[in-house]
Amino acid sequence: MKWIRLLLAGWSTLVAALFLASSSGDVTVQLFGSSKHAQYLVKGLVMSGLVVPIILYLYQHLYRMTGIKPKTPIYSWKRGYHFFTGVLLAIALGAMGFIIASSQGWIVIEKWHAPDQWFAALLINVVFAVLYEALPEELGLRGFLYDVLRHRFPAWLSVLLQTLLFVAVTTAVALIQAFVGLAPGVSLDISYIVIIFCFGVGLQLLRLWTGSLWASIGYHLTYLEIMRFAILPHVYGVPPIITYQDSVHGLSFLFAIAMMQIGGIIVSLVILGTKRLIQKRKMIRTDTHS
């Protein structure tokens, strides 16, 4: 039952780190005042500072348990070029969403804002998003927890279980925050749970067909920045990348979610299916020649 202990250790690490990181804002205010940048930096350092070394340590136990240590792990820098695979896929799906919505009259694009108005804020948020969200979550969830589950279950079930654990991390942290008297970081309604469930599935499938965790990190990061600086702007006190009007309130948000999450899942499934079909044909040809 060692795999269960590893699974619980990895999941508990993510829950504890996210709770401590999200709760570190109060301490940061006392030390550095009300600077949002300082709060973001401390939260990111706490999250990655706890999750990354612990998960990498747990990976060594997983390798010993399975008796297999890959020459190039899925988190290796040698697979880092796939970071741009994730970035470009998210940008392509996001841009396609805007093009379709604009051509159908669902949104009216009013203005593109010059980068000097939002680029600095976006770069600062990229650093925060990598440390607080993209890197630790992908390493822990789409990396370690999936690999532990894959040791025991088929791929499709491992994807499903990992995604449920992803939802459970957010739920557990919100419940702990409420229990100790802190305001929950997220609102746990059905729509939010559906969104993060689809997000988790898409990110896991992306890791599977690229064979690299960096693709998931790149997609995760780019998705967050598109949502924060194009779809749901003005949160960071700077003009958005683009200003537009919805024909129906909230339509652009729903369409962007559908394009970048459901669209990402469809693209990944098509690529995975194509790769499997090619592999089967190669096997048939090999058997025929032999």
Rank of each mutant, 00 (worst) to 15 (best):
W214D: 01
A92I: 08
A101T: 14
W112H: 08
F199S: 04
L161N: 01
T171W: 14
S290C: 12
G49W: 01
R142P: 01
S212I: 03
P53D: 04
K2A: 10
G181D: 10
Q279W: 11
H82C: 03
Y81M: 04
W156I: 08
T288N: 13
L203K: 09
F144T: 00
P233S: 14
H151P: 04
M65W: 06
L165Q: 01
S158F: 00
L20D: 05
Y57S: 08
V126Y: 09
R228S: 15
L165A: 05
L272I: 15
W209M: 09
K275M: 12
V42F: 01
L31M: 13
T210P: 06
Y223K: 06
V180D: 07
V15K: 04
M65T: 02
L205H: 04
T72K: 08
I99G: 04
R5L: 14
T171A: 14
V127I: 15
V130C: 09
H61L: 03
V173I: 08
I257G: 15
A178P: 02
H289C: 12
Q162P: 06
L165N: 03
F255Y: 15
I231T: 08
A121D: 10
P239Y: 14
W3L: 13
S12G: 08
I54E: 01
Y40L: 11
D147W: 09
Q30D: 13
F199R: 03
F255S: 14
V27P: 03
V108R: 11
L139E: 01
L122W: 11
G263C: 11
L272Q: 10
T66D: 05
V29N: 03
S34R: 13
L149Q: 07
G67A: 05
F166W: 14
V27Q: 05
I99C: 07
L208P: 06
V159L: 07
L205F: 07
F166S: 03
S35H: 09
I74W: 02
G185T: 11
L58I: 03
F144L: 08
L139H: 05
G44E: 07
A38G: 01
S103E: 12
I68S: 03
I54D: 02
T286M: 13
I242S: 13
K280A: 12
G202T: 03
K71A: 06
H220M: 06
T222V: 11
A230T: 05
L88G: 05
M65V: 01
H113E: 14
V173C: 06
S76C: 05
L139M: 07
L8P: 06
V42G: 02
W106I: 09
L175N: 12
I107M: 02
I124Q: 13
Y146Q: 01
L221A: 09
I196C: 03
Y75T: 00
G44D: 07
H37L: 10
S102R: 12
A114H: 15
V201H: 03
P53N: 02
E138D: 02
D189I: 10
T66P: 03
V29M: 12
D189W: 11
F179G: 05
L20W: 08
A129E: 11
W156T: 04
V51G: 04
R207G: 04
W214H: 09
V52P: 00
A16C: 09
L221Q: 14
S268D: 00
G200A: 09
I278C: 07
I271C: 10
L251R: 15
G10M: 08
H249C: 07
Y75W: 08
I262F: 15
A215M: 06
I109Q: 00
I265F: 04
